[in-house]
């Protein structure tokens, strides 16, 4: 008689999760419904770059599109990392995917690995598409070794700081309707975080408020990578504040990595066929 060690069973679940992530990423290119959702934002972002292509910042001859590009890259990370997992986890709780995972030995581990892989791959793809479109369409952005290294670092740190938060939010949201608050909140933060205009024009209390969230720092990081050095003058304290950036994102990553497994496990514990059926009855009678 052979007994399964925890290592064997976890390895099997992680490998299965990797295949799950790949299958679901592939689906986002083959399912019309998913392709439309995935392509929608990228197309809007590219349209924005096209429209701003010939515009310059007021009073300078610096390209307006160049200042917007880092903001768009930041948005792709934030929406991919926070909104992606939170909305899909809520939806998959309602359709019983999570219950299926719960019925499978180490199925939640496989599910989580699959989700991370899927979110990382599809966000990376959107990030690269915007970046390449930006480099082709926009003058005045810097694309050298330092920029590439920094962007890679910011993408990775940005994902690690946001995906666990997205998973945690997806676990606490009670319904798809509630989960709709996540993109709304992220949208408001994006507006207030100075991605598309100098943050220093905002009241100081709002500046301090948004500096508590990852959006501002991922945006700052993207600007520090791609904009010429003199642009730092428009930033708070006239500095790119790299150390602070990695510190704040690190704190968010730590918070998320602690909270996400706890909240996900608590949510999974509550899953049952009756709970799924109840949600379905609610959707049938109320429409959401």
């Amino acid at each position: 008689m052979t007994t399964a060690t925890a290592l064997d069973t976890h390895r099997a679940a992680v490998l299965a999760g990797l295949s799950r992530g790949w299958i679901e990423t592939r689906q986002s290119f083959t399912e019309t419904a998913k392709v439309i959702v995935e392509a929608f934002f990228s197309l809007i972002y590219i349209a924005v770059l096209l429209m701003l292509r010939r515009k310059t910042m007021p009073g300078t001859d610096f390209s307006l599109a160049a200042t917007v590009l880092p903001g768009l890259l930041c948005m792709s990370i934030i929406f991919g990392g926070i909104v992606g997992p939170s909305v899909s986890i809520t939806a998959e709780r309602e359709d019983g995917t999570l219950l299926r995972a719960k019925a499978t030995p180490n199925g939640m581990l496989g599910y989580l690995v699959g989700k991370i892989v899927m979110v990382a791959l599809s966000t990376l793809l959107k990030f690269v598409v915007i970046l390449v479109a930006g480099i082709m369409l926009v003058n005045d952005v810097i694309v050298d070794a330092r920029a590439c290294l920094l962007l890679t670092l910011i993408f990775v740190v940005g994902m690690v700081a946001t995906v666990p938060i997205g998973v945690a939010l997806g676990s606490v949201m009670k319904s798809s309707l509630q989960a709709g608050l996540v993109p709304l909140t992220c949208g408001l933060l994006v507006i207030a975080s100075g991605l598309f205009f100098p943050i220093t024009v905002l009241p100081t209390w709002l500046q301090s408020f948004v500096q508590a969230f990852p959006v501002y720092w991922v945006g700052l990081g993207a600007r520090s990578a791609m904009l010429p050095a003199q642009m730092v003058a428009a930033e708070i304290g006239g500095s790119w504040r790299m150390v602070e950036m990695f510190a704040v994102l690190g704190v968010w990553a730590a918070i998320g990595l602690v909270l996400a497994p706890v909240l996900l496990r608590r949510m999974a514990r509550r899953q049952s066929g009756s709970a799924v059926a109840e949600v379905r009855a609610r959707i049938r009678s109320k429409g959401y």
């Binding site: 399964a4 060690t5 064997d8 390895r11 099997a12 299965a16 799950r20 499978t104 030995p105």
Partner: peptide, 17 residues
């Protein structure tokens, strides 16, 4: 696809019986 995915989780739990 789904059956193959789910089957993978059980492989390490095989026993002699």
């Amino acid at each position: 696809e789904l059956l193959t995915y789910l089957a993978r989780f059980y492989a390490p739990f095989a026993t002699a019986e």
